[in-house]
Amino acid sequence: MNSLKKNGQWFACICTCLIVFISVHAYAGNKRIMTIRAAKVLAERALVETIYGLKLRAVEKVEDMVATSFKGTTESKTKAVVNGIRFEEVVYDPEQDIAKVMASVQVDKIVNIDGMEIDLGNKVFRRVAFATSTPQNAGALKALRAAELDAYKQLMKRIVGFELESHTSVENYILKSDIVKTKVLATLCLAEVTEYGWTDEGDAYVKMQVNIADIEDVLGQKILGNEKVIEVMGEGAQEDTFSQATKLQDKESNAQLKKTQVTGDKRP
């Protein structure tokens, strides 16, 4: 009787362990699939941005040349249907829950974001994207996207130029910038990523280039300069140390203001 009881207990214990083991693995599998799927979608977006193009709006403004007054925003938009995208390389790191996907597509002709038909001569385009389902691990990937957008912005500024608006004061022929604002609103296609990565400090960089001849064909006009290829490097940070510093400065100035108010009240 005793041995039967013991055997039963063992059986129950093994069953529980098995259930726990299976359920844990089932969850991990779902996470892996979701992360890979997200990376595939992002790789598709990257390809659409390269082939079809994207619309980008970026504004930068600074007052009195004080870094804490700096405001910079960049927004991007794209929407297209691209057929025949293949996923050449799918890598998943289960420890960090990060997926890397390389997507490629061969395109003969395409109508780009400006409604112009471009002959791409069956060229194969490749783009890489990363994704994660774990928010704690997203920092490096967000920095990479920020670097990508920065690179797009720099290319647009170089190709179509940008608007500068400023207020400057002059004292004894010496200039002092009071307000400086730059604006760029443009579309860009055929930008290719040549290199990407992260520095030792964790900041991301993306090198991007466009072939001037291709862009001139699309625009139907000559671009200033003699370069055949324009290459830029975009940067993106993981940590918002700027906002942290700004908040700290705000707190200090508020405290100082309170102090001066208190001393001011005491005065007769």
Binding site: V62, M65, T168, S177, G202, Q238, T241, A245
Partner: peptide, 20 residues
Amino acid sequence: FAGNKEMVEKRVKELDKLNK
């Protein structure tokens, strides 16, 4: 993490130079 503070400070200097 180096963060974006250095990037912003660099950009502010670039904007000042460009305006002048």
